[in-house]
């Protein structure tokens, strides 16, 4: 068991692990995780643990990656609620706002999902029961900005406050009490 190549193969495992830890983009990190699984299977195989290597290959590079991918995909999302009538009017302002939001969210590896609601009560209800993260409604006519965006997630609000420069909308942060959260 004192073959010299073992000493070269084993450092590959911490090397791949470090690459994984310093990866920022979650999707890229997933691919690196798969690489880590392949390298780990190699190390286990070299050390003579055939069963562990097989398990690592099956679970580490196939099952875990697929599950992680679905989880990352469905959790890194911002759900924005709008009213159906606003959507139906198809205003340029709103489209521009959504394009802006998409761009900012993409930089943070998030997606934007639009949810439509029939009236403003349903929209408010959805925000309060945490079905959506933010609402976008028509603002009051006396203000010069035509839309109002309310966000209930602190971190999202901070990001938008610093990066969203669209003149179309005003921003506000709403606190949602946990009492109405019926899980």
């Amino acid at each position: 068991m004192t073959d010299s190549y073992i000493y070269i193969i084993i450092p590959l495992l911490p090397l791949a692990a470090l690459m994984l830890v310093f990866q920022v983009n979650p999707y890229h990190a997933l691919v690196i995780r798969a690489i880590l699984g392949a390298v780990a299977a190699l190390v286990y195989g070299v050390l003579g643990a055939a069963d562990v290597a097989l398990t690592e290959a099956l679970v580490g590079t196939m099952l875990a990656i697929t599950l992680y991918l679905v989880a990352v995909r469905s959790s890194l999302v911002m759900r924005l609620g709008i009213l159906q009538e606003v959507e139906a009017e198809g205003e340029i302002d709103l489209e521009e706002l959504i394009v802006n939001l998409r761009k900012i969210l993409n930089q943070h590896n998030l997606r934007l999902e639009i949810a439509e609601y029939p009236n403003s009560q349903a929209l408010e209800q959805a925000l309060m029961t945490k079905k959506i993260h933010a609402t976008c409604t028509k603002g009051e006519p006396e203000r010069d900005r035509s839309y109002h965006t309310a966000i209930r997630v602190r971190r999202l609000f901070e990001i938008m406050e610093t990066e969203l420069t669209s003149p179309v909308t005003t921003l506000s942060y709403v606190t949602v009490s946990n009492l109405e959260d019926k899980h």
Binding site: A34, A41, G45, L58, T61, I65
Partner: peptide
């Protein structure tokens, strides 16, 4: 050796899925 052959096919299958 058997494990290597299985890993060869499984790794590729996982890659296609991904």
């Amino acid at each position: 050796g058997v494990v290597a052959v299985i890993i060869l096919s499984v790794g590729n299958a996982g890659l296609m899925l991904l």
